[in-house]
Simulated assay, not measured.
Amino acid sequence: MYASVMDNIFLLVLVTLLSVAQNVFFALKVEKECTGLRSKQQSTGFERLSCANRNCMDTYPTFLAVLWCAGICLSQAPAAFAGIIYLVVRQKYFVGYLGQTSQSTPGFLFGKRVLFFLSLMCVVGILNHLLLTYAGSDFKEYSQTITKAASTLLLLP
């Protein structure tokens, strides 16, 4: 039974651990900037890093919730793929915030799209479960096929 459970969540666990490592990286960048404060110019750099870190941490619980819900309720592979894309986009957002704040806008908008996709996966998985329970209809295979195909569309800018 343990192997079966691990097969169903292994990719989600990997994405979660990668996101934790990314959060540690962000925190270390903020700490490094904080310890090096000496001038007004460095102070604005710290404020930008701190703001970018706060913004990323504000969306982090939502990301974890929809990642796990989508992976468990529908299909773990597309959910993990979307999670990896979200982490790349969040890195782009964080780095973009270090320059001008307008450089972070594409990362922000792309991140919203990935979160929407994961949320949609959650809704489809929950609806399928309700249909199976109360109507006896199971559309999980069709939903998984569509989700796997649609997850590649996340790569489009």
Rank of each mutant, 00 (worst) to 15 (best):
A3E: 14
A3G: 03
S4R: 11
V5A: 08
M6F: 06
D7F: 02
D7T: 14
N8R: 12
F10H: 10
L12C: 05
L12T: 05
V15I: 15
L18I: 12
A21K: 02
Q22R: 00
F26D: 03
A27E: 09
L28F: 07
K29T: 10
K29Y: 03
V30N: 03
V30H: 03
E31T: 10
K32C: 00
K32D: 14
C34V: 01
G36P: 00
G36Y: 02
L37F: 04
R38F: 07
G45A: 08
G45W: 03
F46Q: 15
E47L: 15
R48E: 04
R48D: 07
C51L: 12
A52M: 04
R54T: 13
N55K: 04
N55L: 11
M57L: 12
P61L: 03
T62K: 03
T62C: 03
T62I: 14
F63V: 07
F63L: 05
L67G: 04
W68Q: 09
A70C: 06
A70H: 01
A77Y: 11
A80M: 00
A82W: 03
A82G: 01
A82R: 02
G83S: 02
G83E: 08
I84V: 06
I85Q: 01
I85P: 00
Y86A: 10
Q91G: 09
K92V: 03
Y93G: 12
V95R: 13
G96Q: 14
Y97T: 15
Y97E: 12
Y97R: 11
Y97P: 06
Q103F: 02
T105C: 06
P106L: 03
G107R: 10
G107A: 08
F108N: 05
G111Q: 03
K112T: 05
K112L: 09
K112A: 06
V114G: 06
L115Y: 09
F116H: 11
M121A: 09
M121I: 03
V124T: 15
G125R: 07
I126T: 13
L127K: 06
N128L: 08
N128F: 12
N128G: 08
H129G: 10
L132F: 08
L132S: 10
T133S: 14
Y134E: 05
Y134K: 07
A135M: 05
G136K: 12
S137Y: 12
E141V: 14
S143I: 09
S143K: 11
S143R: 12
Q144I: 15
Q144K: 13
Q144N: 12
Q144R: 13
T145Q: 08
T147K: 08
K148Y: 10
K148M: 06
L153W: 14
L154P: 00
L156E: 02
